[in-house]
Amino acid sequence: MIIDQNKELATKPHYPILDGLRGVAAIIVVTFHLTEPLGTGHLDILVNHGYLAVDFFFLLSGFVMGYAYDDRWNKMTVGNFFKRRIVRLQPMVILGMTLGAIGFYYTDSTIWPLIHTIPIWKMLLVMLIGYTILPVPLSLDIRGWEEMHPLNSVGWSLFFEYIANILYAVWIRKFSKTALCILVGIAAIALAHLAITNGDVSGGWTLNVEQVRIGLTRTMFPFFAGLLLSRIAKPTRIKNAFLLCSLLIAMVLYMPRIGGAAHLWMNGIYESICIIFIFPLIVYLGASGVIQTQRENKICKFLGDISYSLYLVHYPLVYFYVAWISNNKGVTIVEAWPYALLILIGGIALAYASLKWYDEPVRKWLRKKFA
């Protein structure tokens, strides 16, 4: 879902600022996952709206999808489209699931008492299913969190990313602007209803009716709103767009919970406004932005390069951190921050190494193989 479709089609110029924003949001996701176990629930997590980064990724993916592919269907088959998506997505999916499997038994803790009872064949079966990004049923919940992907929690959003890709390639790419506007409008109403009635849009990672509904609702509006934006937007030239958009993303995602337990609907309104209005604005500003210095270009390139790999490799590291907090009840942010910083820096380093030594070489080999 934090995917650089542009780089697959090198003949088209891409948006370097959007690359950089993808990386900024990916780093904020890591900080969210590092502060999440220190809270008691959604109301008091330090990086309270960090999960909205996923909705931003969906919107960004839809925008770049439209830009990269909308005018290429006269010389590209649906089969070729899916080959491109598999080459782009699956190598890091496989690595992320493998890392989760390697660390699985070493994260046994009070929060996951089930782990030491799981036979290795069952863990390996979950890993192999994970390689396909298909969700595992609750009968294969080997960690105890009722996740679609118990070896790498973030895999759920890639599952819905694939669903959006399939809908786009098979059907929705043919929509006129009017039809797409209607679809996006209906999806916006569904998203706002979910957010306001639940108090937030958090969810989508369990294979049951309610959670799949949440996942689909979180995917449909931002992805296809991004597609619509790519078709109707006429980017201008805006200076300092990367800094401005980075600050906007940080403000939205680091915003404390609004309304508290007594007024959940208030937070739902906030999240609806963020996803339906602010995120499209950020993407438009980013697409309109002008890189002003070589340094800014290098920063955006680095952040864009590591964004997808960071998203896929950081959570296997976070499992160790969560297990440590679980085994040491009462850990405070003051005690935890050095370990959290180590995970963050280690995750970025692992993401860069994974990109250069694994992801890029494997994708290059696969492109030649498919060609």
Rank of each mutant, 00 (worst) to 15 (best):
K7L: 12
H14D: 14
H14P: 05
Y15A: 08
L18Y: 00
R22S: 14
R22P: 08
A25F: 00
A26W: 05
A26F: 07
I28A: 06
V29F: 08
L34D: 05
T35P: 09
P37N: 08
P37R: 04
H42P: 07
N48L: 00
G50W: 03
F56G: 02
F57Q: 08
L59W: 01
M65D: 01
A68Y: 05
D71Y: 12
N74P: 08
N74M: 07
K75M: 08
V78Y: 06
G79R: 12
F81H: 12
K83H: 03
R84C: 10
L89D: 10
L89R: 10
Q90L: 14
P91K: 11
L95Y: 11
G100S: 12
F104A: 09
T107K: 01
T110G: 12
I111G: 03
W112C: 07
I115A: 04
I115Q: 04
P119T: 04
L128Q: 09
Y131L: 09
R143V: 14
G144N: 13
G155M: 15
G155H: 13
G155I: 12
Y162F: 15
I163E: 05
I166W: 06
L167F: 14
L167E: 11
W171A: 10
I172K: 09
F175W: 11
K177V: 15
I189L: 13
L191S: 07
H193V: 15
A195G: 10
A195L: 11
N198K: 15
G199W: 00
V201W: 03
G203I: 13
G203E: 11
V209W: 09
V212W: 07
A225F: 01
G226M: 00
L227W: 07
L228E: 04
L229S: 02
I232C: 03
R237E: 13
I238F: 02
K239W: 06
L243N: 02
C245G: 02
P256S: 01
P256L: 00
M266G: 01
G268V: 03
G268A: 00
C274K: 03
I275P: 06
I275K: 05
I276F: 06
F279K: 01
L281Q: 10
I282F: 00
L285M: 04
G289P: 00
G289T: 04
V290H: 05
K298D: 07
F302W: 13
S307C: 14
Y308M: 10
P316Q: 12
L317P: 04
A323R: 08
S326Q: 13
N328H: 15
T332W: 09
T332N: 05
V334E: 12
E335P: 02
L342T: 06
I343H: 07
I343W: 06
G346T: 10
G347K: 13
A351L: 05
A351P: 08
S354L: 06
L355E: 08
W357R: 06
E360G: 02
F370T: 15
